Simulated assay, not measured.
Amino acid sequence: MKIKWLGHSCFLLTSHNGVKVLTDPFDSSVGYDVPRVIADIVSTSHDHFDHNYIQAVQGDFFHANETGHFSHKGIEITGISVFHDDKHGTQRGKNIIYKFVVDGIHICHCGDLGHGLTLEQVNEIGHVDILLIPVGGFYTIGPDQAIEVAKMLQPSVIIPMHFKTKAIQFPIEGVENFLEKMGGERFGKQEVEFDKASVGLTPGVLVLEYV
């Protein structure tokens, strides 16, 4: 399975047999190049412009934008209801955490998670091999809460997202603070490949580079 970071919270997951999952596509106002790709599955964690621009996606795709359990082209999908803020959604609304099972690897995409997780939510999410988690703060959890969430979910690999880069002007932090507190390394590439064996051998935190 391959994971490619297209900027912000948008990743392209590609299974060994070519099934493609795109998470949280964004529009041109974000600053990164709009991810105009062909996908079989597109997930949108919530209806904000930097997470729901499905108009850019090509192909006949299954749109995951609800909670519950789904399956499409051999990919298992679970959507768990959480909030975009720490005031039970009263400030920024709801958010959906999606967990995908691709090639036997459990990938959890937190969307714009705005609070720590309850034990019930952790149980709903279940086993996680790879955690895609926001670390930039302001609109989402920041480095400290991201670390707490990671400790609760205990993934083998953590890939930070939704942080400040030269491409965007959002008032959020870069990834440096999270890396300093959590450890890890910059991968130096936009895409990384895993199988069940290599997930456990990868350093805990892996920062992909936007190209």
Rank of each mutant, 00 (worst) to 15 (best):
V102D: 05
D85P: 09
V82F: 01
F138H: 12
T90L: 08
F83W: 12
H115W: 03
K94L: 14
H109K: 07
G126P: 08
D112T: 14
F100E: 03
P134C: 05
S81G: 00
N123Q: 15
D103Q: 01
V102F: 07
S81P: 00
Y139W: 13
K94N: 09
H106P: 09
Y98W: 10
H127A: 06
D129T: 02
V102M: 11
G111I: 05
K99N: 08
L113F: 08
V101W: 09
L113C: 11
F138V: 11
P134Y: 04
G114S: 05
D129N: 15
Q91I: 14
L132C: 04
H88S: 13
F138G: 00
I97W: 06
P134W: 09
H88F: 15
V122D: 01
E124D: 13
V82Q: 00
H106R: 11
Y98E: 05
N95T: 14
I141K: 00
H127Y: 01
H115A: 14
G126M: 10
H84G: 05
L132T: 01
G137A: 04
D129E: 02
G116D: 12
I130C: 02
G116K: 01
H109R: 06
N95F: 07
H106E: 09
I125L: 13
H88N: 15
G136I: 10
E124L: 13
V122Q: 12
L117P: 00
G116M: 01
I133N: 01
K94I: 10
V102R: 02
V82S: 04
I133W: 12
T90W: 03
L113W: 11
I107F: 12
S81F: 08
H88C: 12
D112H: 15
G137N: 06
L113Q: 06
R92I: 01
V128S: 00
L132D: 05
T118W: 09
V128L: 04
H84F: 03
N95D: 15
I80F: 10
K87T: 15
Y139A: 09
V135A: 03
Y139D: 01
G93W: 10
L119Y: 11
T90V: 12
D103A: 04
V135Q: 02
Q121K: 11
H106Q: 10
I141H: 00
F83V: 00
V128F: 05
D85Y: 10
I105Q: 03
H115Y: 04
C110V: 03
G93Q: 05
I107W: 08
I96W: 07
V101E: 14
L119V: 04
Q91R: 13
I133P: 12
F100Y: 15
G114D: 09
V122W: 07
H127P: 03
T118Y: 08
D129K: 01
D85H: 07
G114R: 03
R92L: 14
I80T: 14
L113Y: 09
E120T: 13
T118Q: 01
E120A: 14
L113S: 00
H127Q: 13
L113P: 03
V102W: 10
R92F: 14
